[in-house]
Amino acid sequence: MNIIKAKSTENGWGLNLGELARIWKDGCIIRLNILDRIKKAYDSNGELANLLIDPEFAQEIMDRQAAWRRVVCLAINNGVSTPGMSTSLAYFHSYRRDMLPANLVQAQRDYFGAHTYFRPRGSFHTEWYKIANLKI
């Protein structure tokens, strides 16, 4: 829903996400009851930035997050792939944080292409091979 909302805003489509959830439920194989709840959330707040901010969804996620983590950990520890569950858990964690580990990805790009990376004090470039005594 967030991707659809972002593209709608960017392109001026003016999509009503609550109505979109209703259409999906009525005209598609996705006939899940959660679509009624999604419609209700967007009908209550048409400017809702993310379903994780809706009070009902937020409370449900907060109540179930410990179990969610246990299931993902159990799957990982047993070598079971859960790409949807683990990725959505990572998204949930990143959505709640002020500071994200994205600077690690930036640092990796800087190492391979001198792209710089951002820290709270500004933008930096490091000559990584000098730090690690590596020959590139």
Rank of each mutant, 00 (worst) to 15 (best):
Ala49Glu: 11
Ala66Cys: 05
Ala66Pro: 01
Asn78Tyr: 05
Cys28Asp: 09
Leu104Thr: 04
Ile3Asn: 08
Lys25Asn: 09
Ala41Cys: 08
Glu60Leu: 08
Trp13Asp: 13
Arg119Trp: 04
Asp110His: 07
His93Ser: 07
Gln65Val: 13
Phe118Leu: 15
Ser86Tyr: 11
Leu100Asn: 12
Gly27Lys: 00
Thr126Gln: 10
Ile23Tyr: 12
Met62Thr: 08
Thr9Cys: 04
Asp110Arg: 06
Trp24Lys: 06
Phe124Ile: 07
Ala132Thr: 13
Tyr117Gly: 10
Ser8Trp: 00
Ala114His: 09
Asn78Ala: 14
Arg37Ala: 08
Asn133Phe: 08
Asn77Gly: 13
Leu35Thr: 01
His125Val: 10
Ser44Val: 00
Val105Lys: 05
Asp26Gln: 13
Ile131Glu: 14
Gly79Ala: 07
Gly113His: 10
Trp13Gly: 01
Lys135Cys: 11
Arg69Met: 11
Lys25Val: 04
Ala58Pro: 02
Val72Tyr: 08
Thr116Leu: 03
Cys73Asn: 15
Ile53Cys: 08
Cys73Asp: 05
Gln108Arg: 04
His93Cys: 05
Ile131His: 08
Met85His: 13
Trp24Asp: 04
Leu48Gly: 01
Asp36Gly: 03
Arg69Glu: 10
Ser86Ile: 15
His115Phe: 09
Thr82Lys: 04
Ser88Arg: 14
Phe57Asp: 01
Ala75Leu: 07
Ser123Cys: 14
Trp24Cys: 14
Met62Val: 03
Ala21Tyr: 01
Asp36Tyr: 03
Gly12Ser: 03
Ile131Ser: 10
Ile53Arg: 10
Ile131Val: 15
Glu56Gly: 07
Leu100Gly: 03
Gln106Ala: 12
Arg96Pro: 03
Glu47Gly: 03
Asn77Pro: 01
Gln65Lys: 13
Met1Asn: 06
Asp54Pro: 00
Val71Ser: 14
Pro55Gly: 07
Ile61Asn: 05
Arg96Ile: 01
Asn77Leu: 08
Leu134Glu: 10
Gly12Val: 00
Lys135Gly: 10
Ile136His: 05
Met62Leu: 11
Arg96Ala: 07
Pro83Asn: 15
Tyr111Gly: 03
Ser88Trp: 12
Gly84Phe: 08
His115Tyr: 14
Phe112Pro: 04
Ala114Thr: 09
Ser123Met: 13
Asn2Glu: 12
Ser81Asp: 14
Ser123Asp: 11
Arg64Gln: 07
Pro83Tyr: 14
Ile23Glu: 14
Lys7Ala: 09
Arg31Trp: 03
Cys73Pro: 00
Cys73Glu: 11
Ala102Tyr: 03
Ala66Leu: 09
Ile29Asp: 02
Leu74Pro: 01
Asp63His: 15
Ile30Lys: 00
Met62Cys: 06
Met85Thr: 07
His115Trp: 06
Asp110Lys: 10
Leu89Ala: 12
Asn50Tyr: 13
Ile136Leu: 09
Arg70Asn: 12
Ile23Asn: 08
Gly84Ser: 12
Ser86Glu: 13
Met1Asp: 04
Ser94Ile: 13
Leu100Ala: 07
Gly18Ser: 05
Val72Gly: 07
Leu74Trp: 08
Gly46Tyr: 01
